[in-house]
Amino acid sequence: MAKLLFRLNGVDESEADEVRALLEEFDTYETHAGRWGLSVAAIWLKDEDAFDDARAVIDDYQQQRSERLQQEFSQQPIVPFWQRVQQRPADHIAVAIAIALVLALMVWPFTNW
């Protein structure tokens, strides 16, 4: 009987392609989420006896990917808030107006205007 090996729901396409390449030596098949995304999009292993080996390959890959992404993230500079406001002032003004409008609509029933 087939055994669920790797869920693909919410996984980047690049990661899914790398996992597919790693699992070429195993007998697997793939299911899709369907038109409305209600089913399980996953990679299934046909041979249950090879599950531990396949899972070890995926766990090792995910550990390496996690370390690589953490390293890439730590090398990116952190942009201060005011610098982001200076880069895109219209976006921040629009968000501030939207927040003020929502707050005004929430408070309006309680005022005596």
Results as ranks from 00 to 15, higher is better:
L69V: 12
R88M: 10
V19Q: 00
Q71N: 10
W44C: 00
A16F: 04
S39N: 15
V57Y: 00
M106T: 12
R55D: 03
L105G: 09
V79I: 10
Y61L: 12
L4H: 05
Q75F: 03
I43E: 00
V95H: 05
H92S: 02
M1V: 14
A33P: 00
V57Q: 03
V85G: 01
G10F: 07
V19T: 01
K46A: 13
A90S: 07
A94C: 02
I93P: 00
F51Y: 14
I93F: 03
W36V: 11
W113N: 11
D91C: 02
D49C: 15
Q64I: 09
W82N: 10
E15P: 04
Q71F: 11
R35I: 08
D49V: 15
D49W: 12
F51W: 11
N112I: 10
E25I: 15
L101A: 09
Q63H: 10
S74D: 08
F26E: 00
K3T: 08
H32W: 15
L103F: 04
M1A: 10
V107G: 04
V11S: 03
F6Y: 11
D52E: 14
P109C: 08
S74V: 05
E13V: 14
E67P: 01
W108I: 06
W113L: 12
Q76P: 02
I99Q: 08
F6K: 01
L4P: 00
G34H: 08
L38E: 15
G37Q: 14
A100Q: 09
M106R: 11
D17F: 12
G34W: 03
Q70W: 08
Y29T: 08
I99K: 11
L101G: 01
F110W: 11
Q86P: 00
I93G: 00
V107A: 10
A21L: 13
A21R: 15
E18C: 08
I93T: 03
A41H: 01
Q76Y: 05
Q83T: 06
E67H: 11
E25D: 15
D27G: 04
S74R: 09
D91R: 11
N9Q: 13
D47Q: 10
I93L: 04
D27W: 09
V19I: 14
V107Q: 07
V95L: 03
R20C: 03
Q76E: 08
A2C: 06
R68W: 04
Q86Y: 05
R35D: 12
R84E: 02
D60R: 04
E18S: 12
S39K: 15
R55L: 05
R68D: 03
E72N: 13
A90H: 08
P89Y: 00
Q83F: 00
A21E: 14
P89M: 02
W36Y: 14
L4V: 06
N112A: 09
L103S: 04
R20S: 04
Y29D: 10
R84M: 04
